[in-house]
C-alpha cells in the first residue's frame, strides 16, 4: 500500500490536467516517468514468453538439425553438414539421424565422427589446449578495450598545459607585429 502511494500521487494531477484539455510539458514528463517502468516490464515479459514458450522438449528431428549444424562438411569450406549439398554431408546427416533414433548421446555421436573424420569435423574447435585461446583472447580484448575507455573517461582533464617555447615565440611575434601596427584592426 505504502509503496504505491508515490506513483498514485504522481499520477493524479495529470488526470486532472488532461480532463481540462490542455496537456503541459510537465504532464507529459510525468506520464513518461510512469510509462517507462511499464515498458521495461512488458519487454521483460515478452522476452520471457519468447524464451520459455518453445513448445516442450527437443524432438528427434530438431536434435538431428542441431547436431548437423555443429559439424563441418569435410569437403566444403565454411558450410555445416546441415547446410551442405555435398554427398559426404548427406552421409553424415544420415549417420546422425540413425544414431539419434538409436538413442546415442550427443557426446557419443561427436566422438564417433571425430574418429571417422578427425577433429576438424567440429565447427567449433575442441575446448582445452591451444584452441581455448579463441575464447580467451576476445574476452581479453573486450575487457582491455573497455578498461581503456574507462581510463579515457575517468582521466583528469588536461585542460591547462604549460606553454612551450614555440608558443611563447608566437605570442611575442604577434605582440611585436601589433606594436608595429602591421596588423589591421589592431588597437
Amino acid at each position: 500500500m505504502t509503496a504505491s502511494t508515490p506513483s498514485s500521487s504522481g499520477g493524479a494531477p495529470s488526470v486532472v490536467a488532461s480532463s481540462s484539455g490542455a496537456r503541459t510539458a510537465a504532464d507529459r514528463k510525468r506520464l513518461r516517468r510512469m510509462l517507462w517502468p511499464a515498458l521495461f516490464v512488458s519487454a521483460l515479459f515478452l522476452l520471457a514468453v519468447a524464451t520459455l514458450d518453445t513448445g516442450g522438449a527437443e524432438t528427434d528431428g530438431e536434435r538431428v538439425q542441431r547436431l548437423s549444424e555443429s559439424f563441418a562438411c569435410p569437403t566444403c569450406d565454411g558450410q555445416s553438414v546441415a547446410e551442405s549439398n555435398a554427398a559426404v554431408a548427406a552421409q553424415i546427416r544420415n549417420f546422425i539421424r540413425a544414431e539419434v533414433s538409436d538413442g546415442a548421446t550427443d557426446t557419443e555421436i561427436r566422438d564417433a565422427l571425430i574418429v571417422g573424420y578427425t577433429s576438424s569435423v567440429l565447427l567449433t574447435p575442441p575446448s582445452g589446449g591451444v584452441s581455448s585461446l579463441i575464447w580467451i583472447l576476445p574476452v581479453l580484448v573486450l575487457v582491455g578495450g573497455s578498461a581503456g575507455v574507462g581510463f579515457v573517461l575517468t582521466r583528469p582533464r588536461s585542460g591547462s598545459r604549460d606553454a612551450t617555447e614555440d608558443d611563447e615565440a608566437l605570442v611575442a611575434r604577434a605582440r611585436a607585429s601589433i606594436d608595429d601596427g602591421t596588423v589591421e584592426g589592431a588597437s
Binding site: 549444424e69 555443429s70 563441418a72 565454411g78 555445416s80 578427425t118 577433429s119 576438424s120 569435423v121 567440429l122 565447427l123 567449433t124 574447435p125 575442441p126 591451444v130 584452441s131 585461446l133 579463441i134 583472447l137 576476445p138 580484448v141
Partner: peptide, 27 residues
C-alpha cells in the same frame, strides 16, 4: 578481432603443432 582470430587461428594452429581444426558458424 573475433573475425580475424577465427579466420587466421586455424592457420596459426596448423603452423604451431600441425593440428587441423575448423572454426565455423557456431563460433
Amino acid at each position: 578481432f573475433v573475425v580475424l582470430l577465427g579466420t587466421v587461428f586455424p592457420l596459426l594452429a596448423e603452423a604451431y603443432d600441425g593440428t587441423r581444426l575448423t572454426i565455423g558458424r557456431p563460433y
